[in-house]
């Protein structure tokens, strides 16, 4: 028996290493403190600016308009996201279809709407389609294409449908194959399988991207102000052009930030609630 592997002597305990003292003012701490100071200064500056340039008559005039614009924005987003959700179902299915033509068509649709700016789409729909008056009149659709609001709603719905279709497709593909097989072995018809088994699981996965899509739409909807609609941004630009006062934009910024933050928090709560069975 070799004894080379066994320590022959007791190794004396060593004193614990000296405590590494961190400098009080590391670079990171300095930078952090400076940046916090910057934000505090910016916040105070903002408040001081808004208070010193406070003008009751302007507030009386523009506050209702901002609120009206806010409602317009919310209405536009809510409607187009809902319409888009309905439209996204057939598109997502088309994308997963075994029929090559259907697959390519939905791929083309998604590629077009995700590959071009919302602003260019809006211009194409508003000014481009608007130039075919006689065609729409023959179809009795001119009332629809004449109106800026319905065109905006149409182009936003088609746009978000493309994004939602991709979200939905990703989520459906995420559902394990065994779920389909299990449903099939129970003899469930395809419709029941989809709506009762696949979709509920897919929607859980899709919850977060859906929330992000809604926030993107709230922000993206600001471009409708360019085609004569008075949403929050439209009223803001009008107020700025009438007063030439920079605070009109700052109020809009506060408004949008609040809406997006509240939306984000609410969505977090919703997600928390809907996924409570998945937590241990």
């Amino acid at each position: 028996m070799s004894e080379a592997y066994v320590a022959q002597e007791m190794i004396a305990a060593r004193p614990r290493p000296n405590e590494v003292r961190k400098a009080d003012w590391t670079f990171a701490r300095l930078l952090g403190s400076l940046s916090i100071l910057f934000w505090i200064a910016a916040g105070i500056g903002l408040i001081v600016f808004l208070i010193t340039s406070y003008d009751q008559s302007q507030i009386d005039k523009y506050a209702p308009r901002y609120f009206d614009g806010f409602l317009t924005t919310m209405k536009l987003v809510a409607l187009s996201v809902s319409i888009g959700a309905v439209l996204s179902l057939p598109i997502a299915f088309g994308r997963m279809s075994s029929n090559k033509i259907v697959r390519n068509l939905s791929f083309g649709y998604i590629y077009f709407f995700r590959g071009t700016p919302l602003l260019a789409q809006l211009f194409l729909f508003y000014y481009g389609f608007g130039s075919f008056r006689h065609f729409w009149q023959d179809l009795n659709l001119w009332w629809f294409f004449r109106d800026a609001w319905s065109i905006a709603l149409l182009s936003f719905s088609l746009n978000t449908a493309a994004y939602q279709a991709e979200i939905l497709r990703g989520a459906i593909m995420n559902v394990p194959k065994g779920q389909h097989e299990g449903a099939a072995s129970l003899g469930l018809p395809p419709m029941v399988t989809f709506f009762k088994i696949i979709l509920p699981q897919a929607l859980i996965v899709a919850l977060r991207p859906y929330g992000n899509e809604i926030i993107l739409m709230i922000k993206g909807s600001a471009v409708v102000s360019i085609v004569t609609i008075f949403d929050l941004m439209g009223h803001t630009r009008r107020a700025f052009s009438q007063t030439l006062d920079y605070q009109t934009y700052l109020y809009a910024a506060i408004f949008y930030l609040l809406v997006v933050e509240i939306m984000r928090r609410l969505w977090d709560l919703l997600e928390h609630r809907l996924t409570r069975h998945l937590r241990r």
């Binding site: 990171a28 701490r29 930078l31 952090g32 403190s33 940046s35 916090i36 910057f38 934000w39 926030i215 709230i218 922000k219 993206g220 909807s221 600001a222 941004m233 910024a253 949008y256 930030l257 997006v260 933050e261």
Partner: peptide, 18 residues
């Protein structure tokens, strides 16, 4: 402090319409 500052920045610029 650095964390908070960076988070303020990202919150603002992800929340505002472009």
């Amino acid at each position: 402090s650095l964390q908070i500052s960076a988070k303020i920045f990202t919150t603002i610029f992800r929340g505002l319409p472009e």
